[in-house]
Simulated scan of single mutants.
Amino acid sequence: MKLSRRTFLEGVAALSIAVSVPAMAHAEDLKMGLLVPGSVSEEGWNRIGYNALKGVEEQLGAKISYVELQQNPASFEKAFRDYASQGYKVILGHGFEFQDAALEVALDYPDTYFLISSSSIHEGNVIGLNTDTSQPFYLMGVIAAKMGRKAGLVGGMEIPPIQQAFAGFKNGAKSVNPDFPISEAYIGNFTDTTAAKEAALSMISQGADFVVPNASGATVGGYQAISESGPDVRSFSIFSDFTPVAPNNILGLYVADYAQGVVEVVRTIKDGSPPTENVVFGLKDPKVMSFTFRDDGPVSVPEDIRAEVKAISDKIAAGEIKTGE
């Protein structure tokens, strides 16, 4: 059959429309990129960033990509630009070190949102995300001061997130007993489990009957020391469930699902109502932060103290108690 030129051109036009509509829809798909300062194959901070990315993919249907970087600010800026130029709507720089690069690139890509972990910034389309760990640690401090004689805090490195957590613990304890003794030590890294264990044992030998280690990968060493010291030394499981390491010592569990927090922030961006200030996750965000008690150990938190802690938790969530100041 012979086609006229007009019929041919109309057919081409129709085909163009049929092809361009899906292409336009594809261009509008939510795309999210992730920059991490290391490998996502290792448990810890970088894996949390990757879990956030996967959560956005699974819950919001986003197309995702990530890049593992060394501590090189020039590579940070290049990675941000690469993603933004490819139409990525959201890019998460997983660490405070990405903030300056994001601020530089964001000026050229006003329609892209740059989320920065462990940052308190909000400048245009650059939004900081933080988890206020002082809040659950405040509750731990209250319990320690009501049930114990002395507390010990073992940190990895003296950096703001750990200092913030420990400040919360100390403020919580002091709210019960201003003279409650608390010792504090840092091992100088996040990998030396032996050093964390020795620091905890030293505190226990000096009378600490509540010990909380907070040293990332080295944390398990602290729980080993607690377990070996018998059930009279108590603790709280933080970030992950360390009950198998110290089954007779852990009274409660603090979990921060930062990854889900990121998902919720990206959801607001997708829905057209992005955050108007830097984001701070806390006890007001039950999808992100939880503090629960154990009932299956040899020692548990008495019901009257649990009721007091619940009331305090509600006040913290409502902003009536400042935990990290």
Rank of each mutant, 00 (worst) to 15 (best):
I159H: 04
I159L: 15
I159R: 13
P160I: 08
P161Y: 00
P161W: 00
I162F: 00
Q163N: 15
Q163G: 10
Q163A: 13
A165L: 11
A165Y: 11
A165S: 10
A165T: 09
F166N: 01
F166R: 02
F166L: 01
F166Q: 01
F166H: 02
G168Y: 02
F169N: 02
K170R: 10
K170C: 03
K170M: 10
G172L: 03
G172M: 00
G172S: 06
A173S: 01
K174A: 13
K174E: 03
S175L: 00
V176Q: 04
N177F: 03
D179R: 14
D179L: 13
D179N: 15
F180M: 04
F180S: 02
P181V: 09
P181S: 09
P181D: 06
P181W: 03
I182L: 03
E184N: 11
Y186H: 03
Y186M: 10
I187T: 07
I187M: 03
N189P: 07
N189K: 09
T191E: 11
T193D: 06
T193F: 04
T194M: 14
T194A: 14
T194G: 11
A195K: 08
A196E: 06
A196G: 13
K197N: 11
K197G: 04
K197T: 08
E198G: 05
E198H: 04
E198I: 05
A199M: 12
A199Y: 07
A199W: 08
A199G: 12
A199C: 08
A200S: 11
A200M: 06
A200F: 07
L201M: 08
L201S: 09
M203W: 06
M203A: 07
I204T: 08
I204V: 04
S205N: 10
S205P: 15
S205L: 07
Q206F: 05
G207E: 07
G207M: 06
G207T: 14
G207S: 07
G207H: 01
A208N: 14
D209P: 12
D209V: 11
F210V: 04
F210K: 00
V211W: 03
V211I: 05
V211G: 01
V212Q: 02
V212F: 07
V212H: 01
P213Y: 02
P213S: 09
N214Q: 15
S216L: 12
G217Q: 14
